[in-house]
Write a protein that binds this DNA or RNA. Structure first.
Lengths: 205, 205
DNA sequence: ACCTTTGTTAACCATTTGGTTAAATTGCAT
DNA sequence: ATGCAATTTAACCAAATGGTTAACAAAGGT
């Protein structure tokens, strides 16, 4: 728990601290003083390196979004077979979130507070994920008869839900089920295989 | 959009306003002045009827939790056949959330900020949902051979995820897919049947 | 050594925000 | 009408909070 802070530059310390505070408390709940304390530096330095709370927040938010969205894009747009895509998606996506459990709550929440503004910003920065190809691919498989009839959007939503939701409910789930960190990790590791299997079992003809 | 406020008591106006503001901005982001404005009354009245922001928040939070948790309990503890339970759960739960789309984000988020405190409070107020029976029932069906082998907790998580997550991603999903309110509603109405079908197709032997 | 640039801090400042107060208004029982 | 309790408001207040400033320390080039 003690400082790794010694050999980090002030700027790095600030970013690490801001990440921690913003991710757990959100924009509205975060305090500049908390971030300064967490970084072990003077509050004025926050403004020296990043002009304002909003600017600092934006950099953390973009960093977080970067971890989530480009990966979706890549898988959506690749030319793997459908079942492979599903397997890859679950595996890679859950992996990211296991390492950053707060990520989905944080990003979705802040988007919910100011949807249009964030949507625009995310779109210009890096193309907001476009599932069009993935949906087409599902339709094609349905026509080929390899999978059952289903609204492609429903299938997409099912996949996203089962991968992402567990992290958004993590604290409640752990308390209710009495799971520690490692047990939750194990549960999510199992899920990397379980979710694709569950989906494919459901839609395969 | 105009006032129904005329024939409501001040207390009712406050509660309605607080509900709206807290649900969309969260505890940290909500301002007492915003709530007063929304209710069209003086800020001091908020403190006259409810002592503090925290007290007011707690009443709104509990009201929200009440809409979500007892219903889960009831279905978990009923003695319906497994497939019926899944169908009922999806149908009833999605219905509640269609009428209150912010509910899941709000409740889960605030729990995430202060997990242990909320967990205790929810437990004393009304028993926090206990899926033990539901999980047992799944095991029994597996042993009977009516459904495939699966970790019951994974199945539970799948069901919860597919019902709840769409509402947490609602704004983003709508923007990305260009869906209006009615279209989203239709999508969720379709989901009431689709989710149980998806699950049962997956686990049925 | 000296100076200039960069980094860092303590002390401040202005605004926001939750909360209080005392006066005014309303409702209503007598 | 009169008096009394409940309700409502404008004006305040103190603490918290984002942000600034001016002085000070470090680093590095000459």
């Amino acid at each position: 728990m003690v400082n790794i802070k010694k050999d980090q530059s002030a700027e790095e310390k600030i970013i690490a601290a801001a990440r921690k505070v913003f991710l757990s408390k959100g924009l509205a709940g975060a305090r500049m003083q908390d971030i300064a304390d967490e970084a072990g530096i003077n509050k004025a330095l926050l403004h020296y390196y990043f002009r304002s709370k909003d600017k600092l927040f934006e950099m953390i938010f973009m960093e977080a979004a970067q971890k989530l969205f480009p990966k979706i894009n890549f898988i959506f747009e690749s030319n793997m077979p459908l079942f492979d895509k599903i397997e890859h998606f679950a595996d890679e996506y859950i992996s990211v979130m296991v390492e950053n459990p707060y990520l989905p709550s944080f990003v979705l929440n802040e988007i919910n507070r100011e949807p249009v503004a964030f949507f625009k910003k995310l779109n210009e920065k890096f193309g907001f994920p476009d599932p069009a190809l993935f949906l087409k691919q599902i339709e094609r498989e349905i026509k080929k008869g390899t999978i059952k009839r289903i609204n492609p959007l429903q299938l997409l939503m099912n996949m996203l839900s089962m991968c992402i939701f567990p992290f958004m409910a993590k604290p409640m789930f752990q308390l209710r089920m009495g799971l520690g960190e490692t047990q939750f990790r194990d549960f999510m590791e199992q899920r990397k295989k379980e979710v694709p299997k569950f989906i494919i079992d459901s839609i395969r003809r």
